[in-house]
Design a binder for these strands. Structure first.
Length: 249
DNA sequence: ATTTCTGACCGCGGACGTTG
DNA sequence: CAACGTCCGCGGTCAGAAAT
């Protein structure tokens, strides 16, 4: 039966396998995973799906708090079994949007408070699992219905990525007031304009790191980070790994 | 020597509520 | 939808450590 629990992962690496699927989410801190040879970091922005029977190793980083969903095969309807099979057909490290992170935060707080209650542990696990499933396989979120012209915004961001871009400026591009733009944007994209901008910068930086051997200082410059240190800080905060590690990995 | 990473601190501006 | 005002989160800077 599906069950959610909180756990601290020790820094010392552990390897094992078990027949049930597992979903690992980070409430705080990070952990390194390797599942069937596929490595990845679990952090606020990224989860790990461990298929049943997959040999996996993990090691927490410092003071981490993880929310772990165990999914024993017993007591699962045929319909659910199909959904789970698709979700866990291979190891994955799905990216988590801001709304999912909020949901995760609430679930973590409830578990910290009433974690010994099996009904709550099962219900919260079900909600998280379904929310993740929808993100991976559900209908894509409706396109912006309002006045937001994402193509125009993306174009503007792309062509000015190397310099500082303010939310007020993006609002101007969208022909909206800053506050209205903020509301509209979050409503249709799921991230705040600032988070979205940062994501674009990080995506561009990740691409440069993988495809070129530019020094970090240059990558930072080209992607609009004010210094190499700023790039490293942002990447560590949001992707859970440093530029150097990304390039090597 | 050079590049990369880390932690602490500070200030800006994003987030959000209110009002009109 | 604009124009405030307030608050605090987080991005940037800096200095120094660690890695290469």
């Amino acid at each position: 039966m599906l069950h959610a629990r909180l756990a601290h992962l020790p820094e010392q690496s552990h390897a094992h396998d078990h027949e049930h699927h597992q979903l690992v989410l980070a409430l705080a801190g990070r952990a390194e995973f390797e599942v069937d040879g596929r490595g990845g970091e679990v952090c606020r922005m990224r989860a790990c799906l461990v298929p049943g029977d997959a040999r996996h190793a993990f090691a927490g980083t410092g003071d981490n708090r993880m929310l772990i969903l165990d999914l024993p095969p017993q007591g699962v309807s045929d319909e659910d079994r199909e959904l789970l099979a698709r979700l866990f057909e291979a190891p994955r490290y799905p990216t988590l949007d801001a709304d999912f992170q909020n949901l995760l935060g609430y679930a973590g707080a409830e578990l910290a408070r009433y974690g010994s209650d099996p009904l709550l542990a099962r219900a919260l696990g079900g909600v998280l699992l379904r929310a993740l499933h929808l993100r991976l396989f559900g209908e894509t979120p409706r396109p912006a219905t309002g006045p937001l012209d994402m193509q125009r915004l993306d174009g503007h961001i792309r062509s000015h990525l190397a310099r500082r871009i303010t939310v007020a400026e993006l609002a101007q591009v969208a022909c909206l007031s800053p506050s209205h733009f903020h509301a509209q944007f979050k409503d249709s994209v799921g991230l705040t304009p600032h988070q979205y901008l940062l994501k674009q910068r990080l995506d561009a930086a990740a691409r440069l790191l993988r495809e070129t051997d530019l020094a970090l200082v240059r990558v930072a410059e080209e992607c609009g980070f004010s210094s190499q240190s700023a790039l490293t800080t942002a990447m560590r905060r949001y992707l859970g790994l440093t530029p150097g590690a990304l390039r090597r990995g």
